[in-house]
Design a protein around this nucleic acid. Structure first.
Lengths: 111, 111
DNA sequence: AAATCACATTGACAACTATCGATATGTTCG
DNA sequence: CGAACATATCGATAGTTGTCAATGTGATTT
């Protein structure tokens, strides 16, 4: 399975911020709306909106408008995809790019 | 198991860059030295050194000096830890902070 | 000891990020 | 319709990031 590293960068960037990580955790048990999330932080409403946009655009979080509210849920497909990707790049595998380096290495000494 | 979100930020930040993601993938099949890694990129030596420092300090990568060379390997303990953390914050769980929000919600309407 | 090789550090800089207050947009309710 | 509420966008700003060339440091070789 071919994956492009760049495809995962937005989700990984989205996860590399403590506020957003906490939001992901909050959403792991179910749906929450923006104002509920906001209550748990001491950040401004505009800042939360900024973070929610990053989370939505990364695909990690589904955003659905419900009247005046926004309802957020975790996108399990995306988190599973990310899990798979992470498992893939951190484990030895047959079709891995690094096999090329290994072959190179076996035929010539390091550096 | 209590986890502090902040503990995982350095590793997640380290992973949210395409160059570093490729390096992690390269190391997933085994050890490589800096000059070998450098060959696969069109970046300067100082830039690679900068990235390797971020990867080492995040704990994702072990750096060992071997004479004039630096030998890098993936830290499987750390990647496993990150896998566990990721699984944890993306799945429903008993001791989760979001249970609090749920309780709040069930006793009062949203917002 | 001097030259060379492998890697790290520094200083500079452009690009990006997180944050806020202010303001705009869209929704609901009286 | 107009007020109040929920969220988004804008402009400003301080801090962070990725990059390079130049230089420093430590190891190896001659």
């Amino acid at each position: 399975m071919k994956h492009s590293y760049a495809d995962y960068i937005p989700a990984l960037k989205a996860m590399s911020d403590e506020t957003r990580l906490r939001i992901i955790d909050m959403l792991s048990c179910g749906e929450m709306c923006a104002c509920e999330i906001l209550e748990e932080f001491s950040i401004s409403q505009s800042t939360l909106s900024y973070h929610m946009k990053i989370l939505s655009e990364s695909g990690l979080v589904n955003a659905v408008r419900d009247g005046a509210w926004m309802r957020y849920t975790l996108n399990k497909e995306k988190t599973d995809e990310l899990k798979t990707f992470f498992a893939c790049i951190t484990s030895d595998k047959e079709d891995c790019a690094c096999k090329t380096y290994k072959n190179k290495r076996s035929s010539s000494k390091c550096c």
